[in-house]
Amino acid sequence: MSNYQSNSIDIAALEPIQAKSKRARKWRLLTKPYIYLAPSLILLWIWMYYPTLSTFVLAFQNWGMVPGTAPTPVGLDNFVRLLSSKDFGISIINTLFYTVGLLPFSIVIPLFLAVATHKMEGKMKNVYRAMFFIPLILAPVSVGAIWRWLFHPTNGLVNDLLLQFGLIDSNIAFFSDPVFAKWLILLITGWKMIGFGTILFSAALTGISKDYYEAISLEGANRFQQFRDLTLPLLSPMIFLVLMMSLLFSSQWTFAYIDILTQGGPFGTSTNIYYEMYKYGFSNMDVGLSAAAALLFFVVFGIIAFVLNNITKKYAFYDN
């Protein structure tokens, strides 16, 4: 690529020099790329990088977001308050719970679905894949509303069926129950995200040559051996990618369902770190606390991303 680019600049130099001086032309050639880059870079700076830095500064200040008031510096006070608060502890444990709990839905089940549908001929393959895909494109709010109705404490379908089959004696208020609430948020987010891995793994599988499978089955490998010795290594770059996205984004994926189904309750048992940041900032108007949590987690997620990136480079198997 860089080779080509130096070429193109040579070609530019060959162009006949017009009225403008050589220096002006060179200046234009130097600045032109930045004119094209400017919109993105300026917007990224204003709406992504600058606010990130502001948040880091706010982490050491106290502010109630009241117009006309200014943030006051408080040193490490926000971090002390944060780390000694019980809610924050719960939210970290839950963040881990959701992050690990989502892995079967983002990797294990999608691997099965992708491999199972891969070898099918004709229409059924696409019908299956199309159905797994539907939850993924629906809006989190809509999905949340539907599940809230399905698990409604008095009139929901799930309670109705459980009662009819005699599995429970009285209705369960699922989203007001500390254990059910957490698990349901995990299951609903998982249900939503199954299509994500499935489609990406299916795509990666399509790229694997059929010859490999013929060769390995000639050697007498059964289906499981084929999967273990051929499919899995060849899919490894994609598996690492999905793993990284799942670890980094799972807290954002669960956010909407926490907000719509439980608002973090009952008693903060289903909240996660991002939802706490939102609550600190926009319910408690405690900007410093929210910013401190953001800074802390930004560092943690940054480390995770860095480590995973290096592991991927080391262990993923690339078929060239």
Partner: peptide, 18 residues
């Protein structure tokens, strides 16, 4: 790098200043 790294900034981190 600057562009790719911005992918890692979640809305929850920048929502208050924005």
């Amino acid at each position: 790098l600057l562009i790719s790294l911005s992918w890692l900034i979640p809305m929850q981190v920048i929502m208050i200043p924005n």
